[in-house]
């Protein structure tokens, strides 16, 4: 197949998903938005564009997850399932099984589309105010970054992707645990817009969430920094598309830290003032994650491949 129309089709489908998914999420037109991205998926399948179909399906899945599966109940198991990034691994495995010439031709496009998807997911997370939706956007963004690295042509990109994988899995799980713990304490008040001021009652949970947000934002002293550094250098060896990575990382950092700030800063309401801080079981579990992220940030060679 001629690569030019294929690349154009990819671009159109990606743009459609980028524009349709956030609109579907932000407005009340759930059905229309889902139908629109679903149509993109069908168009991708009919045109033989596997990547377009996958992106379209992902676009259709996001509104579904946000409305149904990421509802107020029982969302932690789903976070843990998605946070293993199995789809990124599956896509990378499929890509690796292609003939070497086809792989070499498709690689820049796959990396570019993955980076676009990462940026789109970060924008999606930026548009959200509810913690669980923010987390879903962050998971999707990190997953796309992992895919970009795993399909890279050099060992640096693959090592970077594996490091991002470890960091994101631990950091997002920590944030999800903190949010689930807070949801159990304050109930629907967690989704209230504005600053909730929960640090007054739960300073330890605030610190755990903050360190995890630093790791997701690729800040130094956490494992996120060497992971992003490796991924950036690896992607740049394949081309300048990797220059999008600092922008995506900046957006992810802002989104993660803004979520933490909204949860923990500000004036506490009467109903949240007396809630308990991290219980011993939560505390030691989260401490293990925190030590992993800090140890990986200080001595990354001990943990990275």
């Amino acid at each position: 197949m001629n690569p030019v129309p294929l690349a154009a089709l990819h671009a159109v489908l990606t743009a459609a998903v980028i524009f349709a998914a956030p609109r579907a999420v932000r407005t009340a037109a759930w059905t229309a938005g889902t139908l629109w991205v679903g149509a993109c998926a069908v168009a991708g399948l009919l045109s033989g564009s596997v990547l377009g179909a996958a992106l379209g399906l992902a676009g259709a899945l996001i509104p579904f997850l946000l409305t149904k599966a990421f509802g107020p109940h029982a969302w932690l198991p789903l976070v843990l399932l998605l946070n293993g990034h199995p789809l990124a691994l599956l896509a990378a495995r499929l890509f690796a099984s292609l003939p070497s010439e086809a792989r070499a031709d498709a690689r820049p496009k796959v990396v570019a589309v993955a980076l676009l998807a990462a940026a789109a997911a970060a924008l999606l997370a930026y548009a959200q105010t509810r913690p669980r939706r923010v987390l879903l956007g962050l998971i999707a963004s990190q997953s796309a970054l992992i895919l970009a690295g795993l399909t890279g042509a050099n060992a640096g990109a693959v090592a970077g992707a594996l490091a991002v994988w470890q960091t994101a899995a631990v950091a997002v799980t920590m944030m999800a645990c903190v949010c689930a713990g807070l949801a159990a304490r304050v109930g629907p008040a967690l989704d209230r817009p504005g600053y909730l001021g929960l640090a007054a009652a739960a300073p330890r949970l605030a610190v755990f969430c903050l360190i995890a947000a630093f790791a997701l934002g690729d800040l130094p002293l956490t494992m996120g920094f060497p992971a992003a550094e490796l991924l950036l250098r690896g992607l740049l060896e394949d081309g300048l598309a990797g220059l999008a990575l600092p922008v995506i990382a900046a957006l992810n950092a802002f989104v993660a830290l803004r979520m933490t700030a909204r949860l923990f800063w500000g004036r506490a309401s009467d109903e949240t003032r007396d809630m308990p801080d991290a219980l011993p079981r939560e505390r030691w579990t989260l401490s293990a994650g925190l030590l992993f992220l800090l140890f990986g940030g200080l001595l990354p060679s001990a943990l990275l491949p």
Binding site: L245, R258, G266
Partner: peptide
């Protein structure tokens, strides 16, 4: 942190810092 103005100011500063730090990491990458 119990007042909203410092929280908003810190997030504004963070946004500017992250935006401008994109230039730093891009420059180093180049």
């Amino acid at each position: 942190q119990t007042r909203e103005a410092p929280a908003r100011g810190a997030l504004y500063m963070l946004a500017v810092y992250r935006l401008c730090d994109v230039g730093f990491f891009t420059g180093i990458a180049l």
